[in-house]
């Protein structure tokens, strides 16, 4: 299981790196799709079908929109020349990655095995949640009953995003100004 997850994570990292360096933006987008759909497989392996459904649908819709945007704009990436500052940037990035990996190892050392631990709060949610909320799906019960505030926040984020897009993309107000 962990081996399989590691292989899929490796694919995701390769896809992300290729997406950064692809010359053609459309192939970069396809490589980006590898990352998203591998994440779906990871969610399914970790027994989270709710997340997997959301991820696969959102990934597909955003991919369609981004393909439409790329086909209507430019397919060539703007190239940067490699300068001497970039060497410094790469060294700094590698140092930061090393530091982050080290502290991550330190932080997860006292935890239990992958997927095995339950915290005190999770136990309180899991025990008798179906009777308390009446919802057979525990995830929905947590989302809309125990953690209603979080769901309201997420919906507000979407609302704000739509308002922001409408504000940025209006043409009439810009012409008048």
């Amino acid at each position: 299981m962990e081996l399989l997850l590691s292989i899929i994570l490796g694919f995701m990292i390769i896809g992300a790196i290729f997406a950064l360096h692809a010359r053609d933006l459309l192939s970069a987008l396809v490589a980006f799709g590898i990352v998203g759909y591998s994440l779906v497989i990871c969610f399914l392996l970790l027994k989270a079908p709710d997340l997997a459904i959301v991820q696969i649908v959102v990934e597909t819709v955003t991919l369609v929109i981004m393909v439409a945007v790329i086909l209507n704009s430019t397919r060539e990436e703007v190239k940067d020349k490699l300068r001497w500052q970039s060497a410094l940037t790469i060294v700094l990035a590698l140092l930061f990655i090393g530091g982050l990996v080290y502290f991550y190892q330190v932080a997860i050392a006292p935890l239990d095995e992958l997927g095995m631990h339950t915290t005190r709060m999770a136990e309180a949610y899991i025990e008798g949640a179906a009777e308390k909320t009446g919802s057979a799906n525990l995830v929905t019960g947590v989302l809309f009953d125990f953690r209603g505030y979080d769901t309201l926040g997420e919906a507000t984020i979407l609302f704000t995003a739509a308002i922001g897009v409408l504000t940025v993309l209006r043409l009439k107000g810009k012409k008048a100004a």
Binding site: S135, T140, A162, V165
Partner: peptide, 30 residues
């Protein structure tokens, strides 16, 4: 069953659908 949970589900579903559709249509109109 489940009291208000299905109602929240329906309204959040409407919210997500309408928000994403608004963004999509705004891009097409632009």
């Amino acid at each position: 069953s489940a009291g208000t949970v299905p109602l929240y589900n329906i309204f959040i579903g409407m919210e997500v659908a309408a928000a994403l559709l608004t963004i999509f249509i705004a891009l097409v109109i632009f």
